[in-house]
Simulated assay, not measured.
Amino acid sequence: MLSHFDDYLVHQTSAPVLHPVNGDPAFYERYYATGFARDASAHFGFGLSVYPNTGIVDAALSISRAGVQESIFVSDHLPAGQRVSQAGPVRVEVLDPMKRLRVVIDETDGVAADLTYVAQSVPLEEQRLIRMRGTTTASDRTRFVQFGAWEGTITLDGESIDVGGWHGVRDRSWGVRRQATAEDVRSPDVKPIHAVWSVMHFPDDFLQVTLHEAPDGVGHARLAMQADRLSANEVSPDGQLKRTDDVSVSISYSPGTRRPATAKIDIGPRGPLEFTIEVDPKQTFQMKGLGYFHSDRPHGFDHGGLSVLRERWEIDELDPLRKDTVHAQQLSIFRRSDGVEGVGLFEHVAMGPHEPSGLPGGLGAP
C-alpha cells in the first residue's frame, strides 16, 4: 500500500514505506517522554505507540504526586494506509526533529494537556538490545534518549498543573518488543527480566545508565553515557558523548519487596567516565500507569476501536510484588562521588530469578 511517504527519498527496502520488513505482531514504534519537578515532588510520564502489523495505536498520560497516581489510557485502530502519531484525543507533533516535540490531549474524562518538550542535549543512542527467550525474540529494538525541559500545562478535573521549567527526558524507540504487551501480560508465566534505566539531570551535564541482565547476571546491554547541557539550536543528531560499558548497579531492596530502598551505580574506570553515584529514592511512579504490565491496558491490545479509560491509585495501597506493580520508576536524588548532586529517575524491573541480587524465581522478595 502506497502513502505520501513514498514520494520522499527515505526507503530502506524495496517495499513501500508503510510495509514493515518484520512481520512480527510485536513490531512497534514509540514516543516516550517524562517530566519531573526540580524538587522531586511530582512526576509525569507519557507514551504513544504504533503497532503497524496489527493496526493498533495506543497512548497514555500519568502523573504521580503526593502518593497518588492518575492515568488516562487511549487506544484506537490505525487509519487504513496511514502511520499517524495520534490515538483519539491524544497526538504527538514533531515541531523540529530532535529539538522540539509537542504532546496534546484534547479534554477527555477531565484530562487535558498541551506540553512542549525543548531539547537540552544531543540524542543518546543506546546499544541495540537483543534478548531471546529460547527461540522467541523478546526484544530487538533501537532507542535514543534525549534530555530537555518542558513548557505547558496538564489539566486534571479543572486543576491546571504548570510544568514550565520541569526537567524532561524523552526517548524514541522502534523494533520488536514483547515486554508489557498483551501477549506477555496475559501469560500465566513470569518472563525473566532484570533491567535498570536511569536518567539524571546534573547542573552542567546529563547522565544515562542502561542495564539489562540475564538471570545469571550476564549483560544483554550495559552502558553509561554523559552529554553536555546545550541550547536547542546547538543540538545535532551526531553530537559528542562520553560513553563506557564499565557499569555495575547494586540495589538494596525494601524488606519484603523488589522495590529499591537505595542503590549505587559504579561507572568506570575503563573509558572516559569514572565515578560512583548514590541513589536516594523520593517517590514512586508505577509504570502500569503507562500500560506496562497493566492487566486491562497492556501495550498493543485491540479494544475494538476507540477506547478510553481513566484510573487513580493510592500508591502505598498497591502490593509491590504483583506482576502489574513490580515495574516502577522512582523519582530520586543522585549524589555523585565528585560532590555534584542531581535529580532524575531510577527505573527498575526485576521478574524471575537474578543470581547476583539474590532474587528467587517468580516475583518473590529476596
Rank of each mutant, 00 (worst) to 15 (best):
F334Q: 07
E314H: 02
S41N: 09
S41E: 12
V122N: 15
R172N: 12
Y28E: 11
Q208A: 12
M351Q: 12
D76Y: 04
K323C: 01
F46G: 06
R100F: 02
L78P: 03
M351W: 05
L211I: 12
G339C: 05
V249F: 04
H194P: 01
T136P: 01
M351V: 08
G291K: 11
V84C: 03
W313Q: 04
G291V: 01
S71G: 04
S64H: 05
F206Y: 14
R270M: 10
V185F: 01
L359S: 04
P79N: 07
K282G: 05
A42S: 15
A66M: 08
Y31K: 08
D205K: 01
A182V: 08
L18P: 02
D216H: 02
A227T: 12
V176E: 12
H201S: 10
S332A: 15
E311D: 15
R30E: 14
W197S: 07
P123T: 00
A33E: 06
N233H: 12
R258G: 07
K282D: 03
E341V: 13
V122G: 12
Y31I: 14
L124Y: 03
K264P: 02
L129D: 01
V199F: 03
A261T: 05
V199W: 04
D171Y: 08
G300S: 09
T181N: 03
